[in-house]
Measured scan of single mutants.
Amino acid sequence: MQIFVKTATGKTITLEVEPSDTIENVKAKIQDKEGIPPDQQRLAFAGKQLEDGRTLSDYNIQKESTLHLALR
């Protein structure tokens, strides 16, 4: 499925993911596309910060959802 990640600079990244993917996997995909190390990424959805060990389906993130990326 496709999801979107909006960066602090307003850029939107499109990612191909599975509901079973962990947040860690998603951060690795962002690193592949943007070169941002996962340990510098903070992802949020619906106002909640997402934890590495959880999956997209844990957070009820569905196709075409938009996550927000902040850098630490």
Results as ranks from 00 to 15, higher is better:
N60G: 15
I61C: 02
T12E: 06
T12L: 13
L67M: 04
G53Y: 13
S65H: 08
Q62V: 10
S65Q: 08
V17M: 06
K48L: 12
N25C: 04
T14E: 11
F45P: 00
L15Q: 01
A44T: 13
L15P: 00
S65W: 04
R54I: 07
T22N: 07
E24Y: 13
T12M: 14
V26D: 00
V26L: 10
T9H: 13
A8Q: 10
T55K: 11
T14I: 09
L71M: 09
Q40I: 14
L56Q: 00
T22K: 11
Q31L: 10
T22E: 04
G47R: 04
E16G: 08
K33A: 10
S20Q: 11
Q2P: 14
Q31N: 14
A44I: 12
E34Y: 08
Q41P: 01
S65E: 09
Q62L: 13
N25E: 10
T7R: 10
N25H: 13
A70W: 11
A8F: 13
N60E: 02
L56V: 07
S20A: 10
H68C: 05
K6M: 15
Q49D: 13
V26Q: 00
D52G: 07
M1C: 03
E16F: 14
R42D: 08
D39A: 12
L56N: 01
M1E: 02
K63A: 12
A8K: 10
D21R: 02
K63E: 12
I13P: 00
A28M: 09
D21W: 08
K29H: 09
G35E: 05
E64K: 10
G47D: 12
G35M: 05
T66N: 05
I61V: 09
D52P: 07
Q62N: 08
P37H: 14
I30S: 01
L69Q: 03
I13T: 04
E18A: 14
E16A: 09
Q49F: 07
A70R: 07
L56K: 00
E34G: 04
I13M: 07
D58H: 14
T12P: 05
P38Y: 09
V5H: 00
I3Q: 00
T12V: 15
E18C: 04
D39W: 13
H68M: 08
I36W: 10
K11D: 11
P38N: 10
K48N: 08
K27M: 04
A8R: 09
T14Y: 07
P37T: 09
D32N: 08
P19V: 09
D39P: 07
T22S: 11
T9C: 05
T22V: 14
Q40V: 10
S20P: 06
A8L: 09
L67G: 01
A70E: 09
R72I: 13
G10C: 05
D52F: 04
K6P: 01
I3V: 07
N60I: 04
E16V: 10
H68G: 05
K33T: 07
R72Y: 09
T7P: 06
D32F: 12
I13Y: 06
R72T: 14
K27R: 05
I61R: 00
K29I: 09
K6Q: 14
H68Q: 09
T7N: 11
D52E: 11
K48W: 08
Q49R: 10
L50K: 00
T66E: 07
I23G: 02
A46N: 15
P37I: 06
A70I: 12
K63C: 05
L56I: 08
S57P: 03
